[in-house]
C-alpha cells in the first residue's frame, strides 16, 4: 500500500479493462476499526470470482486520481476526522460528483465526513455535504453487538458510537436488537449509491450478503457482472457461525461497561 503502487494503480485506472478499482480514503486516519478488513474482503470475494482488483488509497496531500469503481471510507477518532477534513474539502466537488455514480461504503467517522455538518461540543465542523444529513456527536453511547434489518437482509455488527444523525432521508438499517433488548431505531444513511453506517465489526466479513451487494455494485460500475464463486461458501459458513454466536450473546454482554 505504498505510494508508488498507488500511483501505478491510478495510472492503470480506467484503461485497464476488466480491473475493478476500489479506493480507500484516508486509511491511516480513518481505519481504526478493522476497516482494511472490509476492503480486503471485497477484494478477496471479487478475485475468487475471477476478477482483477486494484486496491488504491488516498492520503492527505495526494491528488485524487480518476473515478474508481467503489469508494470505502472507514472509522476514526474526531482528531483524525479533523486531520483529514481540509484535504477532503479540497476534493469536495470531485467526491460529490463521484457519488452520483460510484458506490460508496462509509463507516462511522467516514459517514460523518460525508454529512453536511458535524456537531460536537468542541465545535462544529462542515462536512463534505455529499449527504444532507447532519451528525451529532456526544449523544448517548451505544456499545455492543447489534442486529439490524436492511434491504439486503438481516445483518449483525458491533456498535461503539455516540452519534445521532438528523436529516436522514432514507436510513440504511433499523437496529432491531441490541444490548438493551428489542429495539427499533435507525442506523446510517442510504442513497442510490451510498451505504453509510455506524455499525462496525467489521461489517463485510461478518455479513457476506452486504459484501456481495457492494462487490456487485463495484463490478457493475466497472461494466462487469459479479457472480460470487462457490468457493466463497467456506467463508460464509464461518460468518454464519460467528454471527449466530453474536446474536445469541447480544443481550448478555457488555452491559456493565462504564
Amino acid at each position: 500500500m505504498n505510494d508508488a503502487t498507488d500511483e501505478n494503480a491510478r495510472k492503470a485506472g480506467p484503461s485497464s479493462g476488466g480491473t475493478i478499482r476500489i479506493l480507500q480514503l484516508y486509511p491511516d486516519e480513518l481505519g481504526v476499526t478493522g476497516d482494511a478488513g472490509n476492503v480486503d474482503v471485497l477484494r478477496i470475494r471479487l478475485e475468487r470470482s475471477g476478477h482483477t482488483v486494484a486496491i488504491e488509497t488516498h492520503r492527505p496531500g495526494a491528488s485524487l486520481g480518476t473515478e474508481p469503481d467503489l469508494v470505502v471510507i472507514g472509522n476514526g477518532p474526531l482528531s483524525a476526522l479533523r486531520r483529514v477534513l481540509p484535504d477532503a474539502l479540497r476534493h469536495r466537488l470531485t467526491i460529490a460528483e463521484w457519488a452520483q455514480r460510484v458506490p460508496f461504503f462509509a463507516v462511522g467517522a467516514g459517514l460523518e465526513l460525508l454529512c453536511a455538518r458535524i456537531h460536537d461540543s468542541s465545535g462544529d465542523l462542515d462536512g463534505l455535504g455529499v449527504l444532507g444529513a447532519e451528525a451529532h456527536r456526544g449523544r448517548r453511547r451505544r456499545v455492543g453487538y447489534a442486529i439490524a434489518e436492511t434491504d439486503e437482509g438481516t445483518i449483525t455488527g458491533f456498535e461503539d458510537q455516540a452519534t445521532e444523525l438528523t436529516g436522514v432521508q432514507t436510513r440504511f438499517a433499523t437496529i432491531v436488537r441490541d444490548v438493551t433488548g428489542p429495539a427499533s431505531r435507525p442506523d446510517g444513511v442510504r442513497t442510490s449509491t451510498i451505504i453509510g453506517t455506524l455499525l462496525q465489526g467489521p461489517l463485510l466479513p461478518l455479513n457476506p450478503l452486504l459484501a456481495d451487494h457492494l462487490a456487485g455494485a463495484a463490478a457493475r460500475h466497472a461494466g462487469i457482472t459479479y457472480v460470487p464463486d462457490a468457493s466463497l461458501a467456506h467463508y460464509d459458513r464461518l460468518a454464519a457461525h460467528a454471527t449466530e454466536r453474536m446474536r445469541s450473546h447480544v443481550a448478555s454482554v457488555f452491559t456493565t461497561i462504564q
Binding site: 481504526v32 476499526t33 454482554v253
Partner: peptide, 11 residues
C-alpha cells in the same frame, strides 16, 4: 467476550 470489540483483528 472479555475483549468486547475485536474489529482491530482485521488490522
Amino acid at each position: 467476550e472479555g475483549t468486547p470489540d475485536i474489529s482491530w483483528i482485521y488490522d
